[in-house]
């Protein structure tokens, strides 16, 4: 999985600009994902690629369209130094994997090949031949994701 690297405070306005929020169609949202900071994002992402970013990823608006657009782009995981809390919650609720790991976020370069074990939180950088340890999800979050997200989890109750 190839890493695509961005800086600190990537906000939800650049992840998916408000001018596209009159649509709820995830494929259409994916077409415009990240375009305000990276015009080639849609063209260059291959299924399974990951985003690596700095502090406070997903800050700003609560729009759930942001993690939806990232997921629909084919991104399999976002690794960041830290996440804004509403984005963090939204990502889990819609089933986009995210990992907080300052060490990996600092060290991984744009274009590095990366593998992630979600059970252990182990991130392997195959390009640099290094590993980093992220905190795996706690049990209740794992269960929510196993159930298929928040809604499916509530339905089960």
């Amino acid at each position: 999985m190839k890493a695509h690297k961005y800086g600190d405070h990537v906000d939800t306005d650049v992840i998916i600009p408000a001018r596209y929020l009159a649509s709820q169609d995830e494929k259409e949202l994916a077409l415009h994902c990240m375009e305000d900071i990276d015009k080639n994002f849609h063209a260059k992402i291959k299924d399974g690629d990951i985003i690596v970013a700095g502090l406070n990823f997903g800050c700003g608006s609560s729009r759930e369209h942001a993690p939806v657009a990232i997921k629909a782009s084919g991104i399999s995981c976002v690794i960041a130094k830290s996440f804004a809390r509403i984005f963090y919650r939204n990502a889990i609720n819609i089933g986009l994997a995210i990992l907080e790991c300052p060490e990996a976020a600092e060290d991984i370069s744009d274009g590095d090949e990366v593998k992630i074990n979600f059970d252990t939180g182990l991130i392997t950088n195959e390009t640099k031949n290094k590993t980093y340890k992220a905190e795996p999800f706690p049990e209740f979050i794992k269960k929510m994701i196993d159930d298929g997200g928040l809604m499916a989890s509530l339905k089960k109750k």
Binding site: S61, S62, N93
Partner: peptide
């Protein structure tokens, strides 16, 4: 809506969430 935190001005606990929540 992320600006739901406004109502703290009147001593409420209020916070923004996403649509699924």
């Amino acid at each position: 809506d992320s600006h739901t935190c406004t109502y703290g001005a009147v001593n409420a606990f209020s916070t923004g969430v996403g649509s699924t929540d």
